[in-house]
């Protein structure tokens, strides 16, 4: 049964990823239906997720592209799933998504947002998850989280950071690619 084809190898998205995936970041209009950093959905509470991607020296990664994929506010995936894409700011390195708080899509699993990270120096995209700090109880029972050390789980939990200028709950999710408090990345 090993006559399967082999998956095409990945290569880094490189520093010019914006040309093909986020032209607005380099002053060009987005193409029709091109995904951006804002998800419009009336299925749940609107929230903002903001953060930095830091390298092994702690410096912000200013040329990364991130994608999120999550259940809608009612916990539905598939055709109801929500997707967005953001790039990190050339100056500050910050990324920012506006989305809705995801519902629980799988029995026993705490609600979360799947996050992919692409950048120069990342040869194959990194896959992590963002969980919510108010879900401590659900996280304690989550079968995936129970297999991780508490310090590792901590790298996956966003922090509440007040409200945005337009009054939305703001979650901070910093990603550490390497070194101290290195974010947990998954093979899923």
């Amino acid at each position: 049964m090993n006559d399967r084809l082999k998956e095409t190898p990945s290569q880094t998205a490189g520093p010019y990823v914006h040309i093909g995936t986020a032209p607005q970041a380099i002053g060009r209009p987005a193409l029709p239906n091109q995904p951006g950093p804002v998800i419009e959905s009336n299925t749940g509470e609107a929230i903002v997720i903001e953060g930095l991607v830091r390298d092994g020296s702690g410096a912000p990664v200013r040329d990364a592209m991130l994608e999120i994929w999550q259940a809608d506010g009612m916990g539905r995936v598939g055709e109801y799933g929500l997707f967005a894409r953001a790039t990190t700011d050339f100056g500050t390195g910050t990324f920012r998504f506006r989305t809705v708080r995801p519902g629980r899509h799988a029995e026993g699993h705490a609600p979360h947002v799947a996050v992919l990270i692409f950048a120069r120096g990342i040869n194959i995209h990194l896959h992590t998850r963002m969980y919510f700090p108010e879900d401590r109880e659900a996280l304690a029972k989550d079968p995936d989280m129970r297999r991780l050390e508490p310090e590792a789980v901590a790298t996956l939990i966003a922090t509440e950071d007040g409200k945005t200028e337009d009054g939305l709950p703001l979650y901070r999710f910093d990603i550490r690619l390497q070194g101290e408090n290195e974010t947990v990345f998954f093979d899923i």
């Binding site: 899509h105 799988a106 995936d144 390497q178 947990v184 990345f185 998954f186």
Partner: peptide, 17 residues
């Protein structure tokens, strides 16, 4: 050199997501 994670990937079962 500064962007590759040092820790191994953590294998998870896929969900419907």
């Amino acid at each position: 050199v500064l962007r590759a994670p040092v820790r191994p990937l953590h294998a998870l079962e896929q969900t419907s997501l």
